[in-house]
Structure formats: C-alpha cells, structure tokens
Amino acid sequence: MAQSSGFGGALYEGLTIGQKRAVTAWLFLALPIVFYALVRFYPTAQAFWLSLTNWNLLTAPGFIGLANYQRMMVDPVFWQVMGNTLLYLALGLPLSLGLAFLIAYHLDRVRVGHAVIRALYFIPHITTAVAIAWVWRWFYQPVPVGLFNEVLTVVGLPQQPFLRSTTQALPAVLVPAIWSLLGFQIVIFLAGLRAIPQSYYEAAAIDGAGSWQILREITLPQLMPTLVFLCVLTTIGLLRIFDIVYAMTGGGRAAPGGPLNSTKPLVLYIYESAFSSFEMGFAAAQTVVLFLILLAITMIQLKVSKK
C-alpha cells in the first residue's frame, strides 16, 4: 500500500505544473461527467436506438429499421402537431422577447421601487404552469364566469369561444405561455441592460444622440449576447411546450391538445404515442426529430450571434 502510493506519488511528482493542474481538474470533473453520461447521454443514445424498434413496453424491442420515420412522414397528425409547434415558436418567440425587452427597457429607467417591480415580474416564472393554466382557463370561460367575455359583453362586443374554437385555441394557450416566459426574460434583459457601461450613454448624451439612435446604435448591439442567449432558451422552451397546453386543454372528458388537435404540440403527441398508445418506438422517433430540430436551430442562432 505504502509502496504503491509511493510509486503513484513519484509519478505525480514527475508531472509538470500544467499537467498537475489538469489532473486535479479532471479529478474534480470526473463525478459530474459520469453522472451526465449516465443520466443524459445514455438515455439520449437509447432513444436513437428505440426509434428503430417496435417496442410496446410488453414485448422485447424488435428492430424495424426506418419504419417509424416512414410512418411519421405520412401521419397527418404528426404534420399537424409539427405545424402547431412551429406556430407556437413563430408567434411566441418574437412576442415574448419583444414584450420582455419593452418592459425591461422601461423598467431600467425606473429608480423608485425597482426591486419590487422586478420581483413582481418574476412571479410568473416561479409559478407552476398548472396553476397559471387553470387561472387562465377561468378567464376564458363564457359569460357568467369568464373575465374576458364579461369585459367583451360589457363593452358591447360578441362573446368569443376562445379555448373551444379550433382557430382561437392556440393563441389563447400561447398568451399565458408567453406571460409565464416574461419574468425570466425580463430579469435577464435587465441584467444585460445594467451591464452596458454608463459612460456609453453619457458620451452619447454629450454627442447629442436621440433616444432612437441610442437604442439602435448602442443598446441593441450591446444587448446582442443577451438576446441570443434568450433566443436559444426561449426557442427550446417553446419547441418543448407541453405542460401549459396539457393543463389548459385537458381534463374532464376533453382530450388534451384539442379541440381537434388544434393546440396539440409535438411533445404532447410524443407523450400520447408513448403512454396512451404504448408505441415507444414511434414516440422515440419523434423525439429524435425534435432533438435534431432543436440542435439545428440552436446551431443557427449561435452562428448568427458570432457575426
């Protein structure tokens, strides 16, 4: 024992300072790496394998090649949920980021009660999606109950079906989804705004720049890294939208994602394929597609940000 440690010690002593540092660093990193490999990478790799099988939880998975992918290509529901998902993204990303920036930009100027207001905006971020969903569901109810229709009738407008309409349901679900994204985005935007050196603004003020020129030529370019970071996170979040849709459209006799799949996002379809139809292979194939889309979009956004 003493001898082996002596030998190891001699080996360690023989390393350069740089090598010793590297050894120490890897020792510290070893545990998280093992953990990550087991908890993250292994299941991911497993999903790739499962997507090539016909596993139904009961029998052993049998290799069926690309059959799951072929089925996906001709499945109208798959294309519909894909369209829904991209619509969530296409509407939700600009709207949430735009709103969050607008609020953060003005909040940055508020000097009194800044901390309190910021905390208020952060609340949606720490509230569970289910609670948010049920409150909004109640807002969307018809007249004696629902807030929005109440307001509409008071001002003399016709009631709207909201969650019961195949055209209005998706935007109606998206609104609380955006609202719950705002808190985090605002806080990150605020941090980004605060990090811009005050002297840039002072120099601009002396140079006579108006608020539009300052916004366009100083604030926005300086905020670019923040913006890209939020873009990536929000894109990933919206492409994986699930809980809020499930909680707002499901429950009772209604199948979640309705009416008529009009609000159903990809992740919900994956969930149903896996745990209602027990088609694990088909579900896995869809997760692989989602994974590839996420990867591609993230790569594009990071590349754009380098410019």
Binding site: S199, Y200, A209, P221
Partner: peptide
Amino acid sequence: MVFQNYALYPHMTVARNMAFGLRA
C-alpha cells in the same frame, strides 16, 4: 468630452465611432 475609459463603442468601427455625434 474625452472619458477616462474613452467610452468608444466596441461594436462600431473607428470611423463610425468618430461620426457618431455627426450622425446625431
């Protein structure tokens, strides 16, 4: 004014930095 840290805008070229006030 010339600032201690120069307050040059890092994302603009020298020419654009110098022209900032003139554009304004």
